[in-house]
């Protein structure tokens, strides 16, 4: 096992009294795809900014590629590709120009940057948009252009902060496909997301973050095994009746979660539980049996759902 590319130990970032990141430790190995999963305000973006060497830590140790970001910011950033949460493409420039100016920031020769720009436009499926204005692109295209821009220096580590937030399902799948390709080529990915399906799709390993601390760490499958059951039965009895019905479900399933709009029953066999419940004379308005997801892991760990 080669040396980790990112090592964070007891990382803390305070703004005044408020600790946005409160003692986070993790390591990312080369070629690994590592995720920070958590709700908005959990400290994911702050962590990303520290790893991206654009924000100084208040306490703790952090090395990226063996270097301390406080002293070697430009050196570290020369090896990173950054996809920020909000696109910051230059809307005064054309699509291809955005790649050209950005490549220069890494000190790369113009000719090389021009070649890369064409390759990356192809990779981002934007070949025929090179001369277009940035603002004429759809949200998904802008995101792909931002990813292309982040790859212009052939980075060792790609940092993706909420890569698909705000995109429609089709655009998300196109983006995931592109990220998969990078993963296959051995690029190390560090991404934040509050979408459990995204984390399951893209992450080899992840940490669940809430209120600036790590709640759990592992592969998506291991986390689900450890913190949830195989299946989940979701039932709606109507918002005024959920709490009432929940009182009569004692002994059903491994565990119950009563949410304002629905009741979740964690069990190895959801269908069997549903039969027992209807057998007892309770008839939900809607019911659904599904496999457990990271959402359930998060709910178990924090008592809250990810998207509130």
């Amino acid at each position: 096992m080669s040396q980790p590319v990112i090592v964070a130990r007891d990382l803390v970032k305070r703004y005044g009294e408020f600790a946005a990141v409160d003692g986070i430790s993790f390591e990312v190995a080369p070629g690994e795809s590592f995720g920070l999963l958590g709700p908005n305000g959990a400290g994911k973006s702050t962590t990303m900014r520290m790893v991206g060497a654009v924000s100084t830590r208040t306490a703790g140790d952090l090395t990226i590629l063996g270097l301390d970001p406080d002293r070697f910011g430009p050196e570290i950033r020369s090896q990173l590709g950054v996809v920020p949460q909000a696109d910051n493409l230059d809307t005064e420039l054309r699509v291809r120009e955005n790649l050209l100016v950005y490549g220069r920031y890494f000190g790369l020769p113009r000719k090389l940057v021009a070649e890369r720009a064409d390759e990356l436009l192809a990779f981002a499926q934007l070949e025929d948009k090179g001369k277009a204005k940035v603002d004429s692109l759809s949200g998904g295209m802008k995101r792909r252009l931002t990813i292309a821009r982040a790859l212009v220096n052939d980075p060792r580590v790609l940092l993706l902060d909420e890569p698909t937030t705000g995109l429609d399902p089709q655009a998300r799948h196109i983006l995931w496909d592109r990220l998969f390709r990078l993963k296959e080529q051995g690029t190390t990915l560090l991404l934040t997301t509050h979408y459990m399906d995204e984390a399951e799709q893209l992450c080899d390993r992840l940490v669940v973050v809430d209120k600036g601390t790590i709640m759990a760490e592992g592969t998506p499958a291991a986390l689900i095994r450890r913190y949830s059951s195989r299946e989940v039965l979701e039932m709606r009895f109507g918002s005024d009746r959920n709490a009432d019905v929940a009182g009569r479900l004692a002994g059903i399933g491994d565990r119950l979660e009563v949410l304002p709009d629905r009741i979740l029953v964690y069990s190895e066999n959801g269908e069997a539980e549903l039969e027992r419940i209807t057998g007892a004379g309770l008839h939900p308005i809607t019911s659904l049996v599904r496999r457990s997801s990271l959402e359930d892991v998060f709910l178990r760990l924090t008592g809250r759902s990810l998207i509130e």
């Binding site: 063996g66 050196e75 570290i76 090896q79 000190g107």
Partner: peptide, 10 residues
Amino acid sequence: AALAAGRNPR
């Protein structure tokens, strides 16, 4: 590699 690549931008 990082130290070398940081030279031009610096």
